[in-house]
Simulated scan of single mutants.
Amino acid sequence: MVAGETSGDMLAARLLSGLRPQLPDSLMHGIGGKHMAEYGFQSDYPMDKLSVRGLFEVLMHYREISGIRKQLMAQLLDEKPDVFIGVDAPDFNLDLEVQLKRAGIPTMHYISPSIWAWRGGRIKKIAEAVSHMLVIFPFEEEIYRKAGIPATYVGHPLAQVIPMEPDVEAAREELGLEADARVVTILPGSRMSEIKYNTTAFIATAKLLLQRDPHLQFLVPMVGGKQRAYYSELVLAAQLDEVPILLMEGKSHTAIAAADVVLVASGTASLEVALFKKPMVIAYKMMAASWHVLKHMGYQPWIGLPNIIAEDFLVPEFLQSAATPQNMADALWQQLNDVALQKRLKQRFTDMHQDLLRDTAGISAQAVLDLIHHR
């Protein structure tokens, strides 16, 4: 298995929670993180080596990433595993899967690349690379079946992990917050590149909100110590360290549950916020050169997963130059104070949660076993 970042590590761990009891003595290895390790997964390379996002950012790390893939490829071709599972990270995994499939090794890809959003031509390469696709959104299964690629809709694993009715009071108690506090959670991203480009604007947004309400409390969860240290360095360099922030390592779900509103970088985290039924503003910044290339490649008017699933601008999105502290602060302020909007969003997000709720661990594990037995 190969997972390339924190969200993939969590998704893969959900699959392993169903698969490990079925294959208690199997060697499961490749590239993964701490959540996968809880199920006896052995990571042969550090996962954070693959956690790079953005066209030019990836190019700067290409030699190292390519070297890891070549070494892993040689190892797997020699080992001939019963199955290889690429978890997201399509730019890394699909090339690996093409070679493994040609060598007769069954390949499964867990989480479809966003071919319905951009780069739809990749489905031809996916057909070469993938023996079976596990998809997490209901509309994806038909796309693959029409292309002749076996696919199974497994639901979104986060829909099972996140409760239908989050316990706000318990989350605030755990974090030492008053029950009646007004809380804004800020999620600039888990990748170092996301933290680099989003942090300053996101914390400057908090500073503007404090001018409107000095009693607001801000939570910023970080994936790990490395990300936390880098975040602190950026805040200090931008002279924003006077903004009162409760900075924490881990506890992202607790921080989201405790929030009244969330400022979140586009990605899986935006879906997590929706499943917690929280109003949000989605924003994203990246290297200017990457944005110049990528902004013309999308098929849809939305970039946030909640909006894509709903096919509607349920929540505001601000990208690149539009992701200014003023724009984000204005949008967050409206969501903090518009009770009718909060109720509408809660209902839409509850409906979304129910649509995505399946026995993900059980269904995905069975698909893996079926692929092994078919071989």
Rank of each mutant, 00 (worst) to 15 (best):
S270C: 09
R69F: 03
N198V: 08
S112E: 01
E38R: 14
A237W: 00
P166D: 14
V293D: 04
L208W: 03
P21C: 11
I123N: 05
L209A: 00
D351I: 08
Q227C: 09
D338P: 09
A201V: 14
R20W: 09
K146D: 14
E140L: 09
Q335I: 02
V264Q: 08
I105M: 06
V87H: 00
F41R: 09
I105F: 06
W118E: 05
W333T: 02
T205G: 08
L187F: 03
F139A: 08
L158C: 07
Y45M: 13
D338I: 09
G30F: 11
Y39K: 02
A147E: 15
A179I: 06
S270P: 07
P24H: 11
L236Q: 14
A127I: 12
I126N: 05
H373D: 08
G148K: 08
Q217M: 03
G30A: 11
Q347K: 09
G189R: 10
H296T: 13
V168K: 14
F56W: 10
L134H: 07
M328T: 04
W291H: 15
N307W: 02
P188Y: 10
Q326V: 12
G18E: 11
Q347L: 05
L263I: 13
F202I: 04
F349S: 01
G224N: 15
L216K: 03
M28P: 14
H374G: 05
S232Q: 15
A323N: 03
I31A: 07
D359L: 12
S7Y: 07
P166K: 14
H132P: 04
I282F: 01
F218V: 00
Y110Q: 02
A274N: 04
V130F: 01
L59T: 10
A238D: 15
H296R: 15
H109A: 05
A103I: 06
M222G: 01
G189C: 09
A127H: 15
